[in-house]
Design a protein around this nucleic acid. Sequence first.
RNA 1: GGGCGCUUGGCUCAGUUGGUUAGAGCGUCUCGUUUACACCGAGAAGGUCGGGGGUUCGACUCCCUCAGCGCCCACCA
Length: 843
Amino acid sequence: MRKKEKLQSTKTEFVKAYEAQQYEDLIYQEWEKSGFFNPDNLSGHGKNFTISMPPPNATGILHVGHASALTYEDLIIRYKRLQGYQTLFLPGTDHAAIATQTKVEKILAEEGTDRHSLGRTKFLARVKKYIAQSQDTIRQQIRKIGVSCDWSRERYTFDQGLSQAVSESFIRMYNDGLIYRGNRIVNWCPRCASTLADDEVEHQEKNSKFYYLKYGPFIVATTRPETKLADTGVAVHPSDKRYQKYIGQILDIDLAGHKITVKVFANKEVDPKFGSGVVGVTPAHSSADFDFAQRHKLEFIKLINEEGKILDAGGKYKSLTVLEARKKFVKDLKAAGQIKKIEDIKNNLSLCYRCGALIEPLPSEQWFVAVDQKIPGRQKTLKQLAIEAVRNKEIKILPSRFEKIYYHWMENLHDWCISRQIWWGHRIPVWYQEDKIYVGLKPPKNKNWIQDEDTLDTWFSSSLWTFSTLGWPEKTKDLKNFHPTQVMETGYDILFFWVARMILMTEYLLGQKPFGTVYLHGMIRDKQGRKMSKSLDNGIDPLEMSNKFGTDALRLSLVIGSSPGADLRIYEEKIAGYRNFVNKLWNISRFIFSSVDEIKIIKKQPPAKTLSDQWILAEFNNLIKNVTDNLDNFKFSQAGEELYEFTWNKLADWYLEIAKIEKNKDETLLYILERLLILWHPFTPFVTEVIWRSFKAKDLLMIQSWPQARKIDSKIKKDFSELQELVIKIRNLKAENKIPPVDLPNCHLKSKILKDSELNIIAKLARVNLVDKFSEAKSFSTSYSRGWINLAKEMSQTEKEKLQKYISSLENKLNNSQFINNAPQQIIKDTQKKLKLAKNKLR
RNA sequence: GGGCGCUUGGCUCAGUUGGUUAGAGCGUCUCGUUUACACCGAGAAGGUCGGGGGUUCGACUCCCUCAGCGCCCACCA
């Protein structure tokens, strides 16, 4: 608690450069202590706004991808909080079944043991212990990013309440006939020793061998010769003349001494032109063949076991691994003269998305979610509900092209295999007693019921995340207040794994959409556009960057330049650039605070005394409007760019410089700074909160009110840009003529629209000596003004040429009768006006 | 095999429903210490907007086509 005392007693010291490390942890503590991360402590207009944090893996460490997601999420939340919403940002972690189990198994292996020798109970205890410490690391890392989430509501997918929600969902779905147990070909990862869902299998194109085998009267081409040991069928195209006579026959085939019996059948899906035009069918080890086998009533022979080894059916190849068996079988076939040829072919390998091991399709009895089954009482399937939610626009996906991808995926979704053979996960709430099955939270009291050994797919529990975290299935106040949530912010890479399944499950269980808008961010890449990976060692550690450049700079580098669905490159120079900006904001504040008589809150917009006041207030109101519009439309980058442009190029470069000359701008400066800090706060929460402390306000910046834009006079902009144009013109002339900045050449200025006081400002900014009379006729002009200056030459040659080119392009346009006849009147008028102004300039 | 995205100065990117002389940051070059900031200021150079064709009075923006890069989906053995 010493740190807090230190915070309260330390005033913000305005040293020359902002040092983020000095403030960030203390500011975060102050926010947390305030209780305003919890919506119950916020007083606003009473409307709620919720984001569920996509839960990071409980054993993970935060990488820059997390940092980017958390930044967008926190940005939205802080914006909404400033707008007066009761905002809930609910944090948590995921037990990440396979990923976690794999990690702990690795540790065990290093210790020279494994989960089987430990036993289920001890193993699970070990996993829990490991997770507890890891979760704590993540919590601290999330804080480091400045995330304003409600820690009092933190959840974990393995919490008791959430586990209850998982069982409850399973039971309801089972009772509605939406979960069933079936014997089917599943994706089996021999390394993880578990099934995987279809979308957990990754495909990778690889160069493979395509073996043409002499196979009875046929030639059969295959990339996996060893599976032919368990063929029970042969498929040909119905109209393929070569093989008509065999259709319907049952043939005994000898493959290098291994005997198989196959039934020949015709199927339209066989392409007579591919390979040999004959397909050997292995019902037990290919899902396509499995379908054939069911339709044509073929026998199933299980050849490969769960460890990827050959079973008894493989005869002399028994106990070999798949690859060993292939090698030996091919050798035997060669010796028997049964290999006609071997081609090189590009082939898709199926790999486990977690560990990269080769997937074996195996027949197995597993639990499935039936996506095409009508839901009792609703006349619709899960798939239909999930498609309609997006089609009806009740859920909007950004960027919208992902809606099409979503439909395509949903429409082609097969039943979802949800049982896993790993230990770490939610145990399936099913009990067996001899041939009976009981589905429920607890087994019946009588006799010995034994629970299903398997656990549930980790995505099953995460699909309930938006509401299981709020207390469902209990009818809690939180569930009523904060569900459905408003925004789901996550990466496009888990659109199917997670987003789609949340929609599907929430529609079924609650009859609600889990969220209104899905904002999908892109992947983070290095400067060359490569994925960050351990092997390339090109990863950017967000915490290291935060320590080096400050969290605010890191956040800016992740937001500005990003657009939804597009990958984002990140590298140190970029972050350093935003560190410079944060320092600029700091110094702007430093200047304002040191130049005003008293630092105070200005409630009403101060009256503008000069053109520059009018201009900066107009620009500022314009900024408020644009930032608000952009944030409302999820255009975070655009909002940030406009803030950046205003702060640096308008406020600092022009208005502050003029303030040094015109004086008496305390109120305007303070009025703008105060509100500018609020606008920046969602992007750069730390530095803005630090600066804010100098206002000595009662409350933290994070709960101030988002400013409202006032009406602006568009004429002001024109007058002020005339002033800017003259300053720039004179500076150019001085630079081109090698007049040192400190020299003040005589200059005479005349303007149709600028007052003498304004011309004086110009003289100071451009560093010339203003005189009334001027003999030497070295002149220059802008659209509305004229000047004479004591320089070697006037308008530079390049500038003249540029202008001449511009003038002739405008003249050509206006002389073109097609243009005069077809273009809208306004465009023609504008063009004429531009020509007149350009000619004035040249004069 | 389908589908999608990207290609704008040396680098990283903006460019809203077609209508200023195509912008920014970084980098480069020149100059510079003026009551915040050298993590700074002033100025400059640098682009036929991937190639070709079309629609239009007018195309970075719309259409077609080609090329390169990338991603997703798919049971072609």
